Computed example of a mutant assay.
Amino acid sequence: MMGGYGMMSGFGWLGMLTMLLFWIGVIALVVWALGNLFPARQATVDPDALEILKRRYARGEISHEEFVQARVALQ
């Protein structure tokens, strides 16, 4: 009655599925490209107490005896 131009003729469901997969692929490609273009920030990790102690000793803020005493207390 529709002369072969109905929904189920020709590509019909296969064409719709192909077009859906195409657009999903395009959207996924755009999301991937934007994700690589603007990478998420890495969370900064705060140094632990021993690292802070080592830095203070390296800067000369504490003496060797204070460093050793604090290191023993931390471990």
Rank of each mutant, 00 (worst) to 15 (best):
I27Q: 12
E66Q: 14
P47L: 09
I27P: 00
A73L: 12
G6H: 05
A40F: 09
L29R: 13
K54G: 00
G12W: 01
L53T: 08
T18L: 13
T44C: 11
T18C: 12
E65L: 15
R59I: 01
V30K: 06
M7Q: 12
N36V: 01
L17Q: 01
W32H: 03
V30F: 04
F22T: 10
I27M: 05
Q69P: 00
N36Q: 07
A40M: 03
L34F: 13
R55G: 09
L17F: 09
L50G: 00
G60T: 06
G6I: 09
R59A: 13
T44R: 11
M2E: 14
L17K: 11
I52H: 01
E51V: 08
A73R: 02
F22N: 08
L50K: 07
G12I: 05
P39S: 01
G35Y: 02
V45H: 10
A28H: 12
N36H: 12
G3V: 05
A73Q: 08
V45P: 05
P47S: 04
G4C: 06
G15K: 14
M2Y: 06
F11I: 13
Q75H: 10
Q42F: 05
E61S: 01
V30T: 05
A28I: 06
G15N: 04
R55K: 14
A43N: 04
D46I: 02
V26P: 00
R71F: 09
I62V: 13
A58Q: 12
L14M: 15
L50H: 02
L21D: 01
R59P: 03
P39M: 04
Q69W: 07
I52F: 02
D48Q: 06
M16N: 14
E51T: 04
M7S: 09
W13L: 15
L21Q: 12
L50W: 01
A33P: 09
H64N: 07
M19R: 13
P39I: 06
A58M: 04
W23Y: 12
R71D: 05
F67R: 06
A40R: 13
I52K: 12
V45Q: 03
G12Q: 07
V45G: 01
F67E: 02
E61I: 10
Q42D: 02
W13V: 15
W23M: 09
G3T: 10
T44V: 12
K54R: 15
I24D: 03
Q42W: 01
E65V: 15
G12M: 05
R59L: 03
L21M: 14
A58R: 06
G6L: 07
F67S: 01
Q75W: 11
A49Y: 07
Q75E: 15
E61R: 00
D48N: 13
E65W: 09
F67W: 06
F67L: 05
R59W: 06
S9N: 14
E65N: 15
V68P: 10
V45E: 11
A33K: 04
V30D: 00
M8T: 14
Y5M: 15
M1F: 10
V26S: 09
A28K: 11
A73P: 09
T44Q: 08
A58P: 00
E51Y: 02
Q69S: 14
V30M: 00
A33L: 11
M8H: 15
G60L: 02
G6S: 10
L50M: 02
I24E: 08
M2A: 11
